[in-house]
Simulated scan of single mutants.
Amino acid sequence: MSKEACAASNRLRRGRCSVVNQIYLVTAVTQRRARVFEDLSAARTLILTMREDARRGSHETLAFVVMPDHLHWLLQLQKGSLSELVGRVKSISARRLGTRVWQDGFHDRALRDEDDLQAVARYIVANPLRAGLVERIGRYPHWDAVWL
């Protein structure tokens, strides 16, 4: 769907627009901010789900960090819609964990061409430092980035 078609679509929730090859910063939060992903197995389940979806060609993950109660995910959409992608990853990860994990919806921001992807990726993976979870990012196990 082109950016022009997105602007004209009345089917998109709250003005959300999905454009193939667009880079998005997505934030998804757990139900009642439960610290689900403090559990190593739960965090790895989410990461595995994201990676499996990427192998199917839906997106390329550029950077992510799984925090105890939310996910920050920088991705380039390759096919389908952003809502379908995020909904699918949230649904599959919750099913694998055997419980309701996620709040409804998610926050997204399409990055403009002039946005500095490296700076955005660094900001994402530095979340555990800012939250006081670790003193060095290398000590936090639930992040990855294509480049920093």
Rank of each mutant, 00 (worst) to 15 (best):
K3I: 11
N10S: 09
N10W: 02
L12Q: 14
L12T: 10
L12I: 11
R14D: 14
R14G: 05
R16I: 06
R16K: 15
C17I: 13
C17E: 03
V20D: 08
V20I: 14
Y24D: 08
Y24M: 09
V26Q: 02
T27F: 07
R32P: 01
A34R: 05
V36K: 06
S41F: 07
A43I: 02
A43G: 06
R44Y: 02
R44P: 02
L46H: 01
L46D: 09
L48S: 09
T49E: 04
M50Y: 07
A54H: 01
R56T: 12
R56S: 15
G57Y: 00
S58F: 03
A63C: 04
M67Q: 04
P68F: 00
P68N: 02
L71N: 00
H72C: 12
L74S: 00
L77K: 03
E84H: 14
V86N: 03
R88M: 13
V89I: 15
S91D: 04
S91R: 05
S93W: 00
R95N: 05
L97Q: 07
G98Q: 11
T99A: 00
V101I: 13
W102S: 13
D108R: 12
R109S: 12
A110W: 12
L111D: 08
L111K: 06
D116Y: 08
Q118T: 03
Q118K: 13
A121W: 03
A121P: 00
I124Y: 01
V125T: 08
V125C: 12
N127R: 03
P128I: 04
G132E: 04
I137L: 05
G138Y: 12
G138E: 15
R139D: 15
Y140G: 00
H142N: 15
W143R: 07
V146T: 10
L148G: 10
